[in-house]
Simulated scan of single mutants.
Amino acid sequence: MYNIFPFATLVFVVLDKAGACKRSITTVSGSQAPNGIICSGDLIFEDDFNELDLKKWQHEQTLGGGGNWEFQWYTNNRSNSYVEDGILHIRPTLVADDFGNDFLYSGTLEISGGSPADECTNPQFYGCIRTGTATNIVNPIKSARIRSLHSFSFKYGKIEVKAKLPTGDWLWPAIWMMPTYNQYSSWPSSGEIDIMESRGNKHLVNPYGTNIGVEQIGSTLHFGPNPNYNKYSLTHYEKNNATGYDSDFHNYQLEWTENALTFFVDDEVVGTVTPPSGGFWELRRLADTGLDNPWKRNSKMAPFDQEFHIILNLAVGGVAFFPDDGNNPGGKPWKNDSPKAATDFWEGREQWLLTWDRNSDATHLKIDYVKVWAL
Rank of each mutant, 00 (worst) to 15 (best):
S40K: 15
Q61C: 04
I193C: 00
K366S: 02
N201S: 12
S277P: 04
M301E: 02
E192M: 05
Y184P: 03
D85H: 14
G348M: 05
W57F: 06
L104A: 12
P339N: 03
F249C: 03
F223V: 10
Y369W: 08
T27F: 05
R358C: 09
Y2H: 15
E350R: 06
S299W: 06
V319M: 04
W356N: 02
L88Y: 06
A287N: 14
P173M: 00
R78L: 11
R145Q: 00
D324C: 07
A341Y: 02
I217R: 01
N228R: 13
F5D: 14
W373N: 04
A134W: 07
V214C: 03
K231D: 11
N228K: 15
P6I: 14
S106R: 14
N240H: 07
T135F: 07
H150L: 08
F45A: 11
N240E: 09
T9K: 15
I217L: 02
Y237T: 07
D16I: 11
E192I: 09
P275H: 06
V11T: 15
R78W: 09
A362R: 14
R199S: 12
S31E: 08
D48I: 08
W295L: 08
W73C: 03
F223G: 04
D325I: 06
W352H: 03
G107E: 07
W57T: 07
T257D: 06
R297Q: 11
Y126T: 05
D42G: 11
A144L: 03
D292K: 12
F71L: 08
I311P: 03
S81R: 11
N259T: 12
T289S: 14
I111W: 04
Y232L: 14
T243V: 06
R130A: 10
D85E: 12
G114T: 12
S106T: 12
S338T: 01
T121R: 01
V319Y: 02
T262C: 09
H236N: 14
K371R: 15
L104N: 09
R297S: 14
G157W: 03
N50M: 07
G218S: 15
T235P: 05
I146M: 01
M177D: 02
K340A: 06
V14F: 03
I25H: 10
V265T: 11
Y245M: 05
E119G: 02
L149D: 00
D16Q: 11
E282Q: 15
G67I: 08
L365V: 03
A242W: 00
L54A: 00
V316M: 04
H250K: 05
G200S: 07
K17S: 13
W187F: 12
